[in-house]
Design a protein around this nucleic acid. Structure first.
Lengths: 336, 336
DNA sequence: TTGTAGGCGTTATCAT
DNA sequence: ATGATAACGCCTACAA
């Protein structure tokens, strides 16, 4: 059912139908009513694909998410869709998975859909492959990264200072009396690399016996939440097996720490009395588990909101900083 | 940059460019190479909007999710996008929020985008408003509902028998010695109404003293996960305040039960010794909290996978049942 | 107030 | 092997 079909049925031309559809002036009331009635009767529905083709710009914003199963990604996606819809845009949200090639490829897909702007969710997008793809495919439309940054004139980033944050977390453990603090990492994303750097800074500052810097874990990709917990369990087992004197562990993300707590519980190791534990994300999991998890709040949802607002400002020709860094905050609970 | 620009630069016609782009036969190798080179040099990117217009069908499947923050919705969305992408389709995933009108409206939006099929995630879509909207806007394309059902010739549903499941949960509590079991509900969705029905059946069967059937809670809409836990805390407080003899509570969803456990913990009420607790969803939260939560596994991710497969089968003209009902399974842990 | 004609960027068909 | 032309469905000048 096209406007031509409607036009024929109403005995008018297609442009008249179009004008009625778009509430334009200069149409006889009688004609308008007649056309509206026929539109109704036929359940006419305008083809949005064609509209996007005809009407420039498209009013579409593309959102790329690495893994929507990650709870703060889901929360962030929810908020972004709300904000963007409220601003009169439509969201296309796509999951990329962990592969850098796929991320670069999805940038291209968004170009093909002629989006007006792009939001990249998570530090994992701050990669050279993505940068190249943006330079090649989207050099002229605004791109915002949540908790990441790429140095290009059309890219904007709001980040959390996770390096300083984890440094403070580690400092806290030493201050509380820990002598041997280890770091457990689940993957080498830019965000996690920053955390690792912060950890090392603190250890070099606080630990004077010259022993090794303890970093355990690996790059666990595309695994589900439950498996991440399992990895936390295993890595904690390994840490304590190889270093029985470890009395504090900082985990790159809460879920890993949850697995750690479960291992410690299984061995009747008291937390924080024997081993202190800190995670990162300040997720719901840390509030639910026992003992409650001390965690570094990276304010992901908050910076998502800011990033989204910044992007809309750019679209409205306002001046926006290309890089905003906000401090992280330690939420102390029972595990430290 | 259109194929005409490329054509001009290469000194050929647009159709030749199109043929090169689509790897068609019957093009001179030299021409092909020349065009390809110019394509490369200009970073040519085909306009997908136009392609969708020209090429029917669109190979797009629409997915509507009420609230992506709900963890099993996010997991389901992840899996669906993987499966659909693998089958050569593109996913448009949209969040509707709780309002029935909005859900109906989003059906219309999907029609306008000329999707080939639709997946509705969650029982909340089994509403008369949605049914009417499907009849009006998508009477001829396959629609699949995850854990819900609408009686229309083009609608398919895979459901979990949550009614029987909750009946079994409640039976379990009575069998374990509970005398007064209450039900806490977070919203009156079709799914939750079924659970409530199962609860009542069990109570009428097991409880013979003629006292009231205890149902507490309300319709909490569009609230975030943490607030849901808070509601669980409050409703549990109210249940025990008004009925001090309650010794078992079935919650419509795990998060509500988590809040319940937190209240019981705060009052030093032992679980399950003094009060037994059961949730529904078999979510990660129930495995993380202490005591670990007994929960009804509604196998949401599993039925998502089935639903998705069923829909793809329909698109491939295979015969598919319109309604499949699978049993739920109680996962017994420490709280009962 | 209404209608005609052209364009959006691509693919497909049919000539050449 | 290549190109001209129509078609997809809508909007918008401009003409009547």
């Amino acid at each position: 059912m096209t406007i031509y079909d409607i036009a024929k049925a109403a005995g008018v031309s297609a442009s008249t139908v179009s004008k009625v559809l778009n509430d334009k002036q200069g149409i006889n009331e009688k004609t308008r009513d007649k056309v509206k009635k026929i539109l109704e009767e036929n359940n006419y529905s305008p083809n949005k694909i064609v509209k996007d083709l005809v009407i420039q710009p498209t009013k579409i914003i593309g959102v790329l998410v690495e893994d929507i199963r990650v709870s703060h990604h889901a929360e962030s996606a929810y908020i972004i869709e709300q904000q963007i819809t409220k601003a009169g845009y439509t969201c296309i949200t796509l999951s990329t998975g962990s592969s850098p090639e796929r991320k670069a490829q999805y940038i291209k897909i968004l170009e093909q859909r002629r989006v007006e702007a792009v939001i990249l969710m998570g530090s994992m997008f701050a990669l050279k492959e993505v940068k190249q793809s943006i330079e090649k495919h989207l050099p002229n439309i605004p791109v915002a990264i949540i908790n990441g940054y790429i140095d290009l004139p059309n890219v904007y980033g709001v980040l959390i200072d996770e390096e300083k944050g984890v440094e403070n977390c580690t400092d806290l453990l030493f201050k509380k009396g820990c002598k041997n603090v280890a770091f457990a990492i689940n993957s080498y994303t830019p965000s996690n690399n920053n955390k690792l750097k912060g950890f090392k800074t603190s250890v070099l500052k606080n630990k004077t016996d010259g022993s090794n810097i303890l970093v355990y874990g690996g790059s666990y990709k595309d695994i589900d939440l439950e498996t991440t917990i399992q990895r936390g369990f295993e890595v904690t087992e390994k840490i304590l097996e190889e270093n029985p004197n470890v009395d504090g562990i900082v985990y790159s993300i809460d879920l890993l720490a949850i697995g750690g707590l479960q291992f410690l519980e299984s061995k009747n190791i008291e937390v924080p009395k024997q081993v202190s534990v800190i995670g990162v994300d300040n997720s719901l999991y840390g509030k639910i588990c026992r003992p409650k998890l001390t965690s570094l709040d990276n304010r992901f949802v908050e910076i998502s909101r800011n990033t989204c607002k910044a992007l809309l400002d750019v679209l409205n020709k306002k001046e926006v900083s290309h890089k905003i860094i906000l401090p992280a905050q330690i939420i102390e609970r029972e595990s430290s």
